[in-house]
């Protein structure tokens, strides 16, 4: 991305080339953070309202999936609501109308997002930079218009009172606490998968393409295949987040596919720190908390989000975790 942040990033990233060997090839401080997050996740529902925490986790996963594309692939999609929202609709519909068990509903929603990501991604990667952002946004708006008209989405009402059902037909997910641990497991699965992708050889090629696409091509990489692959992965994981969200709130609505949702996930990633592993989680937590506390102030939420955008872009491009990582001299 920008020369300035790129320099900052390469400086930060330099020590990562010789990571202290640890479990799963993870540097020790990353492992500690993951364990800390897991501990927080396990204690959380006994301290805070579980539905709020589940919302944070769904959006954290959504933002991390988005960051996989923007922060590591260098591709700014302005239409990730399409994958989040369509997965949310499909899993809600599958659980309510077909009576599917929650795990199947989530899988079906995620698969929908993957297919959609494959189609839109294949088209969108034909353009670069600013056009890529516009194309993804336009396709997402198409999904929105489709959702307004399609008979099964319930139009303005959305799909309401989606049953949470029984996991594998056995465990009742009705109580918030039991659903909470499923969401925790799904989120952690997603986060570790993203971590694995970033640090795999595939992830290294991805970063090379982000930093210098012509050079990667001259080294013999088929960059378009890599870009499409990361687009589909990102869309799929965004779908996983959306499908899970539908069960948490027992609702899939037009808000999930609207462009404001695409903007929110960009904001979470930018605020937390794009191209950092843990930034989007922090960004999601901050944005969701803010929405919760300011919900009664109506349009002020939008205004404050806009202000955060402007301030982040002008003064704070590394994001919260990016700055923290620079202070600690460790990539986070």
């Amino acid at each position: 991305m920008a020369a300035e942040t790129q320099n900052a990033r390469t400086q930060v990233a330099a020590p990562a080339l010789t990571p202290p060997a640890s479990m799963m090839g993870m540097p020790r401080h990353h492992l500690l953070i993951f364990l800390g997050l897991l501990a927080l996740g396990l204690i959380g529902p006994f301290v805070l309202y579980p539905v709020f925490l589940m919302k944070v986790m769904c959006f954290a996963l959504f933002a991390c999936a988005f960051n996989l594309l923007l922060g590591y692939g260098g591709l700014l999609s302005f239409g990730h609501a399409a994958y989040f929202g369509s997965a949310s609709y499909v899993s809600a519909y599958a659980a309510k109308a077909w009576g599917l068990t929650p795990e199947l509903a989530i899988l079906l929603g995620t698969a929908t997002a993957a297919v959609l990501g494959l189609v839109f991604g294949a088209l969108a990667i034909r353009r670069q930079g600013i056009y890529f952002a516009m194309v993804t946004l336009a396709f997402a708006q198409m999904v929105y218009f489709f959702s307004v008209q399609a008979p099964f989405t319930g139009g303005e009402d959305g799909i309401q009172s989606v049953p949470r059902g029984h996991l594998f037909g056995l465990i009742d997910l009705g109580p918030d606490r039991s659903l909470y641990f499923l969401v925790l497991a799904v989120t952690f699965f997603g986060l570790l998968l993203i971590y694995r992708i970033i640090h795999s050889p595939f992830g290294q090629v991805l970063k090379a393409i982000r930093d210098n696409e012509p050079r990667s091509i001259s080294l013999g990489y088929r960059t378009n295949q890599y870009k499409l692959a990361v687009f589909v992965l990102s869309a799929t994981l965004a779908g996983l987040a959306g499908a899970t969200k539908a069960l948490v709130f027992q609702l899939a609505s037009l808000t999930d596919v609207y462009w404001t949702m695409s903007g929110e996930v960009v904001l979470m990633t930018l605020l937390g720190g794009m191209g950092t592993v843990f930034g989007p989680i922090v960004g999601a937590a901050v944005v969701v908390t803010m929405q919760n506390y300011l919900a009664t102030f109506g349009a002020w939420v939008t205004i404050i989000q806009g202000v955060i955008f402007v301030v982040s872009v002008l003064l704070f491009r590394e994001g919260i975790i990016g700055v923290l990582g620079r202070w600690l001299k460790k990539p986070l």
Partner: peptide, 22 residues
């Protein structure tokens, strides 16, 4: 923002649009 990647311009103007509309 002129010395930065184009995408920052998009993000900045998006934020401004949110503020004005709000």
């Amino acid at each position: 923002l002129y010395h930065l990647d184009h995408l920052y311009g998009l993000l900045l103007t998006f934020g401004l649009a949110l503020i004005i509309q709000g």
